[in-house]
Design a protein around this nucleic acid. Structure first.
Lengths: 408, 408
DNA sequence: ATGATTTTTTCGAGCTTCGAAAAAAAGAAT
DNA sequence: ATTCTTTTTTTCGAAGCTCGAAAAAATCAT
């Protein structure tokens, strides 16, 4: 049973709404917030005044390029960049990136660390994460939150990495390790989910309430936005699109099972097939971009195993999207990652396969948008996740930030 | 942007909460509602008093079997059965059932009509629905809502049946036809979704926030509850589990495509395979239960095509559940319908297939609960859907019901 | 300088919830 | 039979929030 709404709850929600309006639109005036939230001028005035006194927001002068209209000019309101600071980590194959981000979302500093994730011990990985946070934050005052994006499956609570292709260790408890080291809340999230979050922030006109982000890379990942909320599993980050079974008893997947979509469409799978290797051969750890580019070139030029490999990859993706659409209906699809470099070869076959599925019947005219580099999306999505979760903490009135005082 | 919460909104939500608490627990006292909602005694007293004055709820004496404790006895509060009436239709192959249900969910009357749905014209089907409503409601006062459960895909708005195996006509606009004829709101919902709703009401301890209901019958259907909400597609009722592709370019499905799960696991598919027919042969319209029983008996007794048919059906279901679980994680599975009569044959192979999938890794000990008859679930879920949607209408204060007056 | 126009703040009214106290309704004790 | 206990329900004043209207503020136009 949901809890009843009390009086203070109403205020909290409306404060949250105001903060969200400012975060979304950048520098709205009080009057614009009135329109966005549907609350009255008086209420917005009161809430804005509170939030400014508490140091969460600040007045930002006449906003961008005052249009010099008649009447009292609007005063732009912005989030106070110094209201809070968050640390964002991004852990992927052989790489750990740390970024320090202010409350407005500006990246204060970023540092990329190279490390051999596959060979490292469990504790070594945890230590590396702690070191990366300590280093990026050093000498820059405190921070309020750590958000970690990982290439792997996380638990639904967002505290640990249940499984990942980048390390042999399962249940890597990044959340508790970082929370203990720094005494701030920590969230651990799947990288593809962060891509979806980023798309929603960056291109809301196209990727708003219902869409799919598919990562084509060494493996195949997915982030799914449904009804404006990130779709996660009940126990884990869910959305293991790459490990839906495309062909029962089919090719060997990196996850140890057989017939997964990834075992046909991951770059290791394309490479394996194009090079004429056995489909049950254990996948290799990494394939560089140049090699994949060469295979794509071959596939474009001549009939042969390379072309067949891309064709089969496209079929796996197409049927996968079709099966997904059978469950959730057609929605915009964004395709991100290295694999998009060969999208010209893949697309016709993806469409052909899709059209053979129940979910694909209305997608003849669907347009797939592609981006080759997933990293900026992951980092942006991760930062926005940390900041909006911080926003939620700001709801409660009477919070003291940076020494400024509440009026209460 | 979500709308801000105003004062009256708060009251509405808390009224809704009280109504929901009563509907869920049956006959709680005011004090029990206090506990369920987290609101104060004073607030519950005020809201209850309003709702009783408005005729939505009523006092129901000492509740069930007063335990004769010390102190002022609790006064049980119940929904007023005469506060509203709804008509529930259930349209399936060759059958149309109409029921009149009071505000508490008691079935006042029910009538089953036989009709040849496949042969009927579009208008004939619509007329039959209108007639069924008129007949069941005749001479019993007005009703406030019509809820239709259909064997077919509906649109996300719940107004029409987009496609159904029971009729050649698509986009059957049941909602507008009934709304125009009777001037009340109409909802049109997929039958499997209604099964899921019913399970949540009937067995909340097991089927609460996350579970799957799978209907094994002539076709294969699914209802999915996620985070306590019915999962629907963005355009349609969604959840077309039966039409996820099990084997690309495989057996011909009733939907016209090839390789769907249903084309292996629907009873027509099992029959076709067991009888040694071509897998690309057009599915027949109906197979009676006795015939399916005979096939199951054959499969139990001897190696042969019947056994192979059930085996392949089980594989399709197992891989399908596995693929579903790859997206949404393991959750309780309820299996309903005629097909459960042979579940003893199916279950081992379903488990075997499931264990080969990414989603099946944690489901070794999963227990599948089965029910042979889907009809009562569909009808109950349909009724509860209509009533809870009516509850939402009752939120607004100052509503006049059955001649009683608001105190305002 | 004055007027017009637009934004923002102020102020009192009207709801709603809450806590405390009172009222109500029963069993238990005397 | 009457009085005490105990528990439920109602009543009442206090506090908090939002709203509309009016006032104040800040700018351009005349």
């Amino acid at each position: 049973m949901t809890a009843g709404i009390r009086h203070d709850e109403m205020r909290k929600r409306n404060r949250a709404l105001v903060i969200a309006a400012v975060r979304q639109t950048g520098q709205p005036s009080r009057t614009e917030i009135t329109g966005l939230t549907g609350l009255s001028h008086s209420t917005i005035s009161a809430i804005a005044s509170d939030l400014i006194d508490e140091g969460i927001m600040c007045e930002a002068g006449q906003g961008e390029s005052a249009p010099a209209r008649r009447g009292r000019p609007q005063v732009a309101i912005a989030l106070n960049p110094r209201a809070a600071t968050v640390v964002c980590l991004h852990l992927s194959f052989n790489s750990l990136t740390a970024a320090l981000v202010d409350y407005c979302g500006n990246v204060i500093d970023r540092k990329v660390h190279r490390l051999a994730t596959l060979a490292m011990e469990r504790q070594g990985l945890l230590d590396a994460a702690v070191r990366a946070v300590r280093e990026i934050a050093h000498g820059r005052g405190g921070f309020q939150r750590i958000a970690v994006a990982v290439q792997g499956i996380t638990d639904a609570a967002g505290t640990e990495m249940l499984w990942s292709p980048i390390t042999p260790h399962d249940r890597l408890r990044l959340g508790p390790a970082l929370a203990e080291a720094f005494g701030v809340p920590v969230t651990v999230q799947n990288d593809c989910n962060m891509i979806a979050v980023a798309l929603r922030w960056l291109y809301p006109e196209r990727y708003r309430d219902n869409f799919v982000a598919i990562l084509l890379s060494h493996g195949i990942g997915m982030g799914l936005m449904l009804n404006g909320r990130l779709f996660t599993g009940t126990d884990s980050s869910g959305g293991e699109f790459g490990h839906m079974i495309h062909r029962p008893q089919g090719a060997l997947c990196r996850c140890g099972r057989r017939g997964c979509i990834e075992a046909y469409a991951g770059s290791y799978a394309i490479w394996r097939r194009a090079r004429g290797r056995d489909l049950w051969e254990k996948p290799i750890a990494d394939i560089d971009t140049a090699e994949m580019g060469a295979l794509a070139g071959q596939a474009r030029q001549e009939q042969g195993p390379a072309r067949a490999a891309f064709r089969e990859a496209a079929e796996a993706i197409g049927f996968g999207i079709g099966n997904l659409f059978a469950l959730i209906d057609p929605a915009p699809v964004a395709i991100i990652g290295q694999g998009t470099a060969a999208f010209d070869i893949l697309e016709p076959r993806i469409r052909a396969a899709l059209s053979e599925t129940a979910g694909g019947q209305n997608t003849g005219s669907a347009h797939f948008e592609t981006w080759p580099n997933e990293t900026p999306f992951i980092q942006h999505g991760n930062a926005m996740t940390a900041l909006t979760s911080l926003d939620r903490e700001m709801f409660g009135p009477g919070l003291h930030v940076n020494g400024s005082r509440s009026i209460a």
